[in-house]
Amino acid sequence: MSERSNEPVSAAWVTIARVARPPRPSALSNALGFGWRAVLKFKHVPEQFFDIVMSPVMFTLLFTFVFGGAVAGSASDYLQYLLPGILVQTVVFNSVYSGMGLSTDLDKGLFDRFRSLPIWPLAPFAGLMVGDVLRHLIAGTLILAIGLVLGYRPENGVPGVVAGFALLVAIGFGFGWIFIVLGLVIRTPTTVMTMGFTVLFPLVFASNIMVYPTTMPAWLQAFVAVNPISLTTTALRGLMGGGATLGEVALALIAPAVLTLLLAPLTLWLYLRR
């Protein structure tokens, strides 16, 4: 040892350096730890609420009052058609956030620290998912509240809304994987966002969210009919407004199920690759 390390060991260092390690926590406890982090982010970065609800609110107001009459005859009829679609659009766009956050964490080296801890390897992702679900529920509730004020009426009442939100969380969860994978391979958060919107814009606009597909050219109608965003919107309209069939809901759940099955293992592989 070097000559200089003969300095007396201060009491503070002894307490710091001689700590008994607690028993290893469970995977669930690890996941809850990261979930807590996601909740803290909401507390410390309240601006993100502005980000996640502002554009859908603008969309709702503009489309209802500008295009409502032209598309559906009246603003109030159009709102009834549009609002479930806006909820889907909100959740799908907001699913980019986890990937951006992940990209930031990787860029900052935070994930290096997590990876060098003896914890359940998927726990950090579980935390991202907790953040996602909270974000979708908060944004969804705010948009729905504005819809109610403007005159939207969910005919199926509270059970319909609850079922609808469950579907929204499922679709957000599914799409979230796309951006988690992008976040793992792309180190700049803004690139993740740009790529995200490049993928999502055509999907969201070439769907039945804003207009009836009947006025579109046949080739586009064919795409819109199989677009997972359309399938989700149709199921959500049915769940909240009445008339959803089991088949519609099942079709809407195909995309999140397939995305999760394909991308969750890919995520783990990308994360553990070294």
């Binding site: 390690r21 607690p22 028993p23 290893r24 926590p25 406890s29 690890n30 809850l32 730890g33 990261f34 807590w36 982090r37 803290l40 982010k41 410390h44 970065v45 964490d105 900052k108 080296g109 935070l110 290096d112 620290r113 997590f114 801890l117 914890i119 726990a123």
Partner: peptide, 23 residues
């Protein structure tokens, strides 16, 4: 080499998060 901390959290919360992860 570069600080591996969550910039949004407080210093205390950063350490509590890691303490929880260690059990």
């Amino acid at each position: 080499q570069f600080a591996s901390l969550d910039e949004d959290l407080t210093g205390r919360e950063n350490l509590v998060l890691l303490a929880r992860l260690w059990g």
